[in-house]
Amino acid sequence: MSIMGDKKTGRLLGIWKSVFGFILSEPRILIPFFILAACETFLLWVLANSPHFPFNFVFAPPIRRVWGPIYLHYPYIYELLPRIFYFMKIVLSIFVGSLTTGMAIHLILASDKNEPINLKKTFFFVFKKYLSLMLLAAVLFITVHFVMKQPAIVFFKYFKAGHVKLLFLGPKFWFGMFLPALSFFMAVVLQAIFVYSFPYVVIKGKKFLVALVLGVKLFLKNWIKTLVVVALPMLLYIPVTMLRNNTAVLADKFSPEVIVSVLFIGILIGTVVVDALVTIVTTLLFIEATEHES
């Protein structure tokens, strides 16, 4: 199947038409994303119950030591929840997300070749490449975590040093408008840089380092197309980011438990929609770009 549809390459609409057609013709390729979303939901539920038996045995001591005992009480646990969920989600994405992404890529390949889909076979096939996939996921998430923090730190230090304005504009502009836009752009770029390394492991059977280098090379070769196809689904995550940035207001207006709902919406949109679309579209682009490689 050609992702470019009628060969008028680069047509955005054509790409997405193909992707949605692909999902509709074989919806089972979404199963790995639902598995990951189920794991994340379970994790969220466990963390939301961290002050209670039996999870308090595991979670109460670190929460008490790192953030203080107040965060084991109502409503403060819900205030802390987005932060601990963020860190635990990184761990889950490295150990489970890498596997489900690999499975999804294998299912997309099988579907593209009109081969029968077998989840068990896919799982064991991808499991053999688990180490490389896990290392790639670790590099991706650790890079994202540390790089995404930097602009906020730089701006914070700049304005804390006593500067009132930067390029004639005050901190309100830089923190309120520029930083969210820059964060979105950085997230798109980082995701795009590493996005082809996963198919290199699953489809071409490359090892971690080779896949990493080849993936970056392929991105550089198709950077505009890749950035656009990665950015579009990620735009869907902006409302979730806005909700997450306003959890304090929502908690005050409704109840602190609303934070759990916001995080759950984040899982649904982030994993089941955004991750699925990004993985499918980039895997199809990868198949097309590398079909003549050995």
Binding site: W45, N49, P51, H52, F53, P54, H73, Y74, P75, P256
Partner: peptide, 21 residues
């Protein structure tokens, strides 16, 4: 069984919620 146990909010936590409301 583990899921069922998670209904085990402490009395203190329930009281904190009621007090907050």
């Amino acid at each position: 069984f583990v899921v069922a146990l998670c209904g085990c909010e402490s009395r203190e936590f329930k009281a904190e919620r009621q007090m907050w409301r």
